[in-house]
Design a protein around this nucleic acid. Structure first.
Length: 722
DNA sequence: CTTAAATACTTTTTT
DNA sequence: AGTATTTAAG
């Protein structure tokens, strides 16, 4: 479709044409946001004469980025928009760092560590500090450090503010981790956001350069930006003051990774004289769907007041499906899909099944597979996270960046070449004493106290890597990987094991090879380095092919920005959605509500909400569940119930109490029948009597929100009340 | 040093 | 239930 501003409604038009001041577009779900953004870019190029290469547009996924570019290109057939900078914060920042990071003492061939790599590095730092990995679990330390970085706290700041044994040590680990990253010539996901800011601060002329380069800055999904992301767009836009951000505070769902809803709510405060446009007409969903979504999210205190409206018809009611357990749930969802498929002629790509946690996909997958329904799953165990894929990638990464000790340790003994832990430890201590990287110690095999066999093996490995290092710039990436896999004898390695698992692993290695080949066909004149960068920044949704005729399964988070005619949300249970297990504050609950809002507003025609009366976790015994409070927040007139035809036995009963996993739960006494309901009157030693407002979980460990006399509202564990 | 067996751990959500 | 890591035996 060619660019014509009259394809827009008046508000959208205003959003496109307003270019004098920093602009905030509140874009509700389904309000034509993508259209406005693409039109705006087209308008900037066509009407304002801004060259595409001077435009920076930030999107939430790489997929959204390439789609945006394509759409703008379609709108402007006479222009070439290929030089426009469109991408995620991470990919745009990675590109900047490839050019600039040498200023910070890294080399431009740096490796990007994923969470698993960071975790390994953090673990080694913990061990080097002679700390106990039981007490300082690498995984949770990584989460904490990531949080620090997303809040832009430097190791020094954390060290200065640390109190007590644990905090002081975590600060130490953080500090050590940053040093080690640099030694490895590696950055993690969070560094990608933070390091460019360090460069801007220390080298103002570089900031100046990028400020001049980007005459116009656009940011999508602005409600999910965190502090460094805000600083980045803020810094870049200071020269031209041409910035346009688009977002919806009701759809902010990444608070747990530092996203700050204040960025959007305080836009005016940050950017001064600004223009604000609200897109409130929804073109996607039926009235009933919008009403249902609104009824839940509007219970949040912390939101900008607004309400979507639509000219669409009322449509069908929201259907709530009750099931016995997760397998029954899967069956019922499948039945519903089949019904819609045969009766209403809905093709499979009309359906999406959303859930709160990736683990929920399994029973649904099983059911779909049993019935030969094609499905596509987004997320879960990622292709590039599989062990065999990471092993081969580790070779490629070490070839590009020999300082990368994490990759080195992955492959020094894969496939097995007789270099065990003891030998690696010797290499490590030699490296430490002589201030050499692990890879460089290989050159000194003569000086190492190791056996003849190990020595030979090491020299061979060293030669192999060096050989390919010389090939990087001479050979294409697919030639390198083919030759490498050949050289390592991986085919034989996997096929001689003759297990189903090893066959599958070999398949995956082949899939990796094809993805490199495909990458080489897609991009001319680029090599191994570029491939590795793309791979490390790829998200699950980027690989999702919507045109395929299959049912889609994904988490609610992944569904952001997408739309489907028919949406299922599975696992509408207390403790699962909303997740209450670690819910610490009302803010967390509000984010869950927004997540529900995002889920429901993905739907164009019909929403099914499903819950089970019992569910097993970790493959253990089934645990009974209570339906989600969100279901009770929906007005009755919008909902139709499809309940299990059951007698009045509401809850699944395990046949023997011995099946309760008492030893694991921290319940001190016997299972009491403390199943409270909303409205029950309870008494408490300290607070006196009160009424139950909300029940989370079941049994004596359930959390009750109780309104006590004297306007006291408390959250209390069930076993403490009578 | 390698292999097999035991054990521990997972479930928020992701770039 | 499924996977990753640790331990014990060879």
């Amino acid at each position: 479709m060619k660019f014509n501003i009259n394809n827009l409604n008046p508000t959208q038009k205003k959003a496109v044409q307003s270019t004098d001041k920093p602009l905030l577009i509140f874009a509700g779900a389904g309000s034509g946001k993508t259209r406005v953004l693409t039109y705006k870019i087209a308008y900037l190029v066509e009407e304002k004469g801004i060259s595409p290469k001077h435009i920076l547009a930030v999107t939430f996924t790489n997929k959204a980025a390439s789609e945006m570019k394509d759409r703008v290109q379609d709108l402007l057939p006479n222009q070439d928009v290929s030089r426009m900078s469109v991408g995620t914060f991470h990919s745009i920042n990675a590109r900047i760092l490839r050019k600039e990071i040498h200023r910070l003492g890294y080399s431009n061939d740096f490796t990007i560590y994923d969470s698993d790599d960071s975790k390994r590095l953090i673990k080694s730092v913990i061990l080097n500090h002679n700390l106990d990995v039981k007490q300082f679990e690498p995984k949770s330390v990584r989460t904490i450090i990531s949080w620090f970085k997303n809040k832009m706290k430097t190791p020094e700041e954390i060290q200065n503010g640390a109190n007590g044994f644990r905090e002081e040590n975590i600060a130490e680990i953080y500090n050590g981790y940053q040093i080690e990253l640099k030694n490895n010539n590696a950055v993690d996901f969070d560094d990608l956001l933070v390091l460019p800011l360090d460069i801007f601060r220390e080298y103002p002329e570089r900031l100046n350069y990028y400020q001049s380069l980007y005459e116009f800055v656009l940011v999508d999904e602005y409600q999910d930006t965190n502090k460094p992301q805000f600083k980045f767009v803020y810094a870049l836009s200071q020269k031209h003051r041409n910035i346009c951000v688009v977002g919806d505070d009701d759809q902010s769902i990444y608070g747990w990774r530092g996203a700050d809803i204040k960025n959007i709510l305080d836009f005016e405060e940050s950017f001064g004289d600004v223009e604000i446009v609200k897109l409130e007409q929804n073109y996607r969903s039926t009235q009933n769907i919008l009403d249902a979504a609104f009824s839940v999210v509007s219970q949040n205190e912390n939101r900008a007041p607004k309400k979507l409206w639509t000219e669409n018809k009322k449509g069908e009611l929201i259907t709530v499906i009750e099931s016995l357990d997760e397998r029954d749930e899967a069956r019922k969802i499948l039945d519903t899909i089949q019904k819609e498929y045969s009766k209403n002629g809905k093709d499979l790509d009309n359906f999406v099944i959303l859930y709160r946690t990736n683990a929920q996909s399994r029973p649904i997958e099983d059911q779909l597979r049993r019935n030969s329904i094609p499905y596509t799953i987004v997320g879960g165990v990622k292709f590039y996270d599989r062990k065999e894929v990471k092993d081969v990638l580790a070779y490629l990464r070490l070839i590009v960046n020999p300082l990368d000790s994490i990759s080195f340790e992955r492959i020094i003994n894969f496939p097995v070449r007789g270099i065990g832990k003891t030998t690696v430890d010797k290499l490590k201590s030699f490296g430490k004493e002589n201030n050499k990287s692990l890879f460089d110690t290989l050159q000194n095999s003569n000086e190492l106290p190791i056996g003849q066999k190990q020595k030979q093996s090491i020299e061979l490995f060293h030669k192999l890597i060096e050989f390919y290092r010389n090939q990087i710039d001479k050979e294409t990436a697919d030639n390198i990987i083919n030759s490498l896999v050949d050289n390592l004898g991986l085919e034989e390695f996997y096929l001689t094991q003759e297990t189903e698992e090893s066959m599958e692993r070999w398949e995956n290695v082949n899939a990796l090879i094809s993805s490199i080949t495909e990458f080489c066909e897609r991009n001319e004149n680029v090599g191994l380095k570029e491939f590795l960068e793309e791979v490390s920044l790829l998200s699950d949704i980027d690989e999702w092919n919507e045109s395929r005729s299959s049912v889609t399964l994904m988490t609610l988070h992944s569904a952001k920005g997408l739309e489907f005619p028919i949406v299922f949300i599975a696992g509408m249970e207390d403790g699962l959605f909303p997740i209450t297990s670690r819910l610490e504050s009302e803010e967390d609950m509000e984010e869950e509500r927004r997540l529900f809002y995002v889920g429901v507003t993905r739907a164009e025609e019909k929403v099914y909400l499903s819950y089970a009366n019992s569910r097993r976790r970790f493959g253990g015994m089934p645990v009974s569940c209570i339906r989600s409070q969100f279901l009770d927040e929906l007005p009755n007139k919008l909902v139709e119930f499809k309940s299990t035809r059951k007698r009045n036995v509401p809850i699944y009963q395990t046949n023997k109490s011995t099946h309760y996993r008492k030893s694991i739960s921290n319940s001190p006494s016997s299972e009491s029948k403390s199943n409270y309901q909303v409205g029950d009157v309870v008494s408490h030693k300290i607070f006196g009597t009160g009424t139950v407002l909300r029940v989370e979980g079941a049994g004596e460990n359930a959390k009750l929100t109780v309104q006590f006399t004297g306007n006291v509202r408390k959250k209390i564990v069930a076993k403490f009340v009578k």
